Simulated scan of single mutants.
Amino acid sequence: MLALNWPGGNASLADVEQQPQALFQQVSSPQFAICGTVRRTCVVDGDTFWLDGIKIRIADIDTPEISQPRCDYEYELGMRATYRLVDLLNVGPFELRTIGNRDEDQYGRKLRVVIRDGRSLGDQLVSEGLARTWTGRREPWC
């Protein structure tokens, strides 16, 4: 279902949007909550969620860690990002788009950009101060 591959090398979100054959999946309106022991459709943290049993990493952002934060500020901001992502995903339908030439990360999560009404939900989290644009490496939050 989500095993989509972007033809070609590195691609930006603009590249994906300009391609008439842009690879994406339209997602209806599932209801998300914070993940518990059963992980089917839920939010793990500000940049990771499960959809129909598939783990997805939002490819265009990085948010603070909540499972192993390095300071109280990181944990608090990470929790705000997590709850905000739940809210954003629950607003209504969205698209999952592939970007770049990697389908999965090293942890087996599908790498996708989440789009609603032509805007990345990751960009929205960045504009709200809850995330950073992904640059290819993690930066400290503390």
Rank of each mutant, 00 (worst) to 15 (best):
I61R: 05
E17R: 13
D72Y: 09
I34P: 04
E104D: 12
R84Y: 00
N90T: 02
P93L: 03
L96D: 04
G46T: 10
R80Q: 15
I66S: 01
I61N: 05
G108Y: 10
C35Y: 06
S12R: 04
D45L: 05
P64E: 02
W50C: 04
T63M: 11
V86K: 06
N101S: 13
E95I: 00
R102V: 06
C142I: 09
G92D: 01
D15T: 10
R57W: 00
G53A: 02
R70E: 13
A33W: 05
G46M: 10
L88P: 05
S120M: 08
C35D: 02
W141Y: 09
L96C: 08
D45V: 04
V114H: 05
G108D: 10
Q18L: 08
V38N: 11
T98F: 01
A33K: 13
E76G: 05
P69V: 03
Y75Q: 14
D103C: 10
I61Y: 02
L111D: 11
R40Q: 15
G122V: 08
V16W: 13
Y107R: 07
Q18R: 14
R84V: 01
Y75C: 01
T82V: 02
S12D: 00
V16Y: 05
G36M: 06
Y83G: 01
L125Q: 12
C42E: 01
R84A: 10
L2Q: 04
V38C: 00
E95T: 03
G78T: 02
E74Q: 01
V113D: 15
V126F: 09
T82N: 09
L121F: 04
E95C: 00
V16Q: 11
A11K: 07
G136L: 08
E76F: 10
E104S: 12
C42M: 06
P93F: 07
T133P: 06
Q106D: 13
S120G: 03
W50P: 01
A33D: 14
Y73W: 10
Y83S: 08
P64R: 02
N10E: 14
G53W: 01
A81K: 05
E76D: 14
S29W: 07
P140M: 12
V38I: 13
F94P: 03
D47Y: 12
Q68A: 14
D105M: 07
M1T: 11
A59V: 05
G118W: 00
D87M: 04
R109M: 10
A3N: 13
T133K: 15
R84Q: 11
I115E: 02
D60T: 00
V126W: 06
A11I: 10
Q21D: 15
G53P: 01
R109P: 08
L130I: 08
E128F: 09
Q124S: 02
V114T: 09
Y83R: 15
S67N: 11
R40E: 14
P140Y: 11
Q26G: 03
